[in-house]
Design a protein around this nucleic acid. Structure first.
Length: 591
RNA sequence: CGGGGCGUGGCGCAGCCCGGUAGCGCGCCUGCUUUGGGAGCAGGAGGUCCUCGGUUCAAAUCCGAGCGCCCCGACCA
């Protein structure tokens, strides 16, 4: 049984107050200045040819891991065995290093998620366990988003997990969209079967099967119908934090699992214009969240007809570009029109006394965002977390020889931790006696902690601290010895600068891998089948052209970009058929 | 749902072809020495070899069936 020491990790989850007030007006969380330019995080793989196994940790926030990343399946198993050499440390280094992103991005992703202890495979096919460190990131996301939802007038509520099958069936397009991936509850009891095992008791068969929600439009609008009589009851602005199940055949940690956590907002409005505004407003909220908290700048736009939510009139999306140049749909907002209100009799009496169907919207983001975070910022040493979402923003590593040095160093470490906590910084002192400082560096780098403070006897003597950022960041020195008083007082500012540097790096990477003005289909295929990235090109609006691209290249229309992202001049011809372009589309291979 | 791979201490693997005492590395426990980039030595704990059936004096190993997981495709947040 691994030891669970008590103690040192009383990190307070401070919430950087980013939200300045009413109606989604924002300022940058810790922003004072905004560096104009910034290089992408340089790969430091040469200096990090190795990485350490998770080892026991005195932090009560999560349990020590096994040495290799938990229930690793073949993601880890598949790796080449370490070369045996004369020097044990070479073997160890190779064994413990992550697969490099350039070698196999998807193996890297799996390993880094497992070994940073974000998640683990569960015994249930297609389902994962979100471990405390990964859940801590999600909690920080929830906290930020929830504040934004509240500030835009929404209230949280909770609706049932199980939905009558007939509800799902009511909206034709909606059923069709989800029918193939639903978990169905048909019985309420088990009994001993002939073989000695358990089987559903036939006597307990439900008259009407229940569906485990793949999304909650149907049950929520059925309830809205009870609650809304008059235009005075509108708008009705509700959000719920929940789990949903979509029976996927193929799964990937965080990106695609049978069950996932998300929030789903559902609103009812008196007019189409209002509903449209709401869908766009929440798209803006998602975008701001991704920019300011995740440092993962997305494009915003409209989904094509074939990619829109089943049952929606139109779907908007935020789409980010991952390091392997594939797109990640990170959130969607839907203008549902009156499609659901007609089916669920969600009517209200208007100001002029006429009975009308309400206009709905729905919008959601999920734990998929955690995967996006990993694929946006991670490097060959591990994940890289933006300070605003990092469960631990600063880790302090004490360095000492023998008991006499230990007391002084630890005292200084806790002093620094307390000063930082008073500044609302989430700090952890890694005082594990069993690991060497070097091992701790690797551990916390793999876990993406933004800033490390090293304190050794020499630092104590000189009243200084070594302050080390997780990655190179433009305009910020990665490693620096600073006077202790200055160090602790400037760390919050440094975290803010680092947050913005990560954003700039991600933005720059996205733009460097975006291709505009592509008119030739052959050139398009070369990009998609080569390095990948976002390709902006004209589209006639035809389903056939969309299908052809997908069949040829596996790329899809990620979105039809909103004004801000459109090219100038606008493309005039369809990339595929050469016909009159109806607009511009952004194409990419996607997750 | 199609194709592939793999099931052996917590994790990664070897052993299987050619049946005969279950092994290695990492991790874990104890002790001592260590600690400025993955510590060393000594001792120790830990295994229904996925399940069921068959062949055999004898099965991790051979044969049959089943189950599970992962990867690649089609579908999706």
């Amino acid at each position: 049984m691994p030891r669970r020491a008590v103690g040192s990790c009383a990190e307070r989850l401070s919430t950087p107050t980013a939200f300045s007030g009413r109606r989604w007006r924002w300022r940058w969380p810790a922003a004072r200045s905004w560096p104009g330019c910034c290089a992408p995080p340089a790969s430091r793989s040469s200096r990090h040819g190795s990485a350490s196994p998770g080892s026991s940790c005195s932090c009560p926030c999560w349990r020590p891991s096994c040495g290799c990343g938990g229930g690793a399946g073949s993601a880890l198993r598949a790796r080449a065995p370490a070369r045996t050499g004369n020097r044990g440390d070479v073997v160890m280094a190779e064994e413990q290093a992550l697969t490099k992103r350039s070698q196999d991005f998807s193996a890297w992703y799996n390993e880094v998620v497992l070994r940073a202890e974000l998640a683990d495979y569960s015994p249930v096919r297609g389902s994962m366990v979100i471990r405390p460190y990964g859940y801590g990131i999600w909690e920080n996301m929830q906290r930020a988003l929830d504040e934004m939802f509240k500030a835009t007038g929404h209230q949280n509520a909770y609706f049932p997990l199980l939905i009558p099958q007939s509800f799902i069936a009511r909206e034709a397009e909606h059923v069709e969209g989800f029918a193939k991936e639903m978990a169905i509850v048909t019985h309420t009891r088990l009994k001993a079967g002939p073989g000695g095992g358990l089987e559903p008791d036939p006597d307990s068969k439900l008259e009407e099967p229940l569906i485990v929600r793949p999304t909650s439009e149907t049950i929520i609008y059925a309830m809205f119908a009870k609650w809304v009589q008059s235009y005075r009851d509108l708008p009705l602005l509700i959000n719920q934090w929940a789990n949903v199940v979509r029976w996927e055949m193929r799964t990937r940690l965080f990106l695609r699992t049978a069950e996932f956590l998300w929030q789903e907002g559902h609103t009812a409005h008196a007019s189409e214009v209002e509903a449209e505004e709401e869908a766009r407003r929440m798209l803006g909220v998602y975008r701001q969240f991704m920019d300011q908290w995740m440092a993962m700048p997305p494009l915003t736009g409209l989904k094509s007809e074939s990619e829109k939510f089943p049952g929606a009139v139109r779907t908007y999306a935020v789409e980010a570009l991952m390091q392997d140049n594939r797109g990640l749909q990170s959130g969607t907002t839907h203008m549902l029109g009156q499609n659901f209100s007609r089916q669920f009799d969600l009517k209200f009496q208007s100001e002029s006394g006429v009975e009308e169907y309400a206009w709905n919207t729905s919008w959601g983001v999920s734990t998929r965002l955690v995967g996006g975070l990993v694929m946006t910022h991670g490097d060959d040493a591990g994940i890289v977390l933006p300070p605003n979402l990092a469960p631990i923003q600063v880790v302090i590593v004490p360095i000492y020889r023998g008991d006499d040095e230990r007391a002084g160093v630890l005292e200084k470490a806790h002093w620094a931790a307390n000063v930082l906590r008073a500044e609302q910084v989430r700090v952890h002192v890694d005082d594990r006696p069993t690991a060497t400082p070097g091992a701790k560096y690797y551990d916390w780098e793999r876990k993406g902690v933004p800033l490390r403070v090293e304190i050794g006897p020499r630092d104590v003597a000189k009243q200084q601290l070594m302050v080390v950022l997780r990655t190179e960041a433009a305009g910020l020195s990665r490693k620096e010895a600073m006077g202790e008083a200055v160090a602790v007082m400037t760390i919050p500012k440094r975290l803010g600068e680092y947050q913005r540097a990560l954003f700039q790096a991600a933005l720059r990477r996205r733009e460097q891998n975006s291709h505009r003005g592509v008119t030739d289909y052959g050139a398009f295929r070369e990009i998609i089948e080569g390095a990948g990235g976002f390709v902006y090109a004209g589209w006639c609006g035809g389903r056939d052209c969309e299908e052809k691209v997908k069949a040829d290249t596996k790329a899809t229309i990620r979105l039809l970009p909103l004004q801000e992202f459109r090219s100038s001049p606008a493309p005039t011809r369809c990339l595929v058929c050469g016909g009159q372009a109806q607009g511009e589309a952004v194409w990419a291979r996607a997750y």
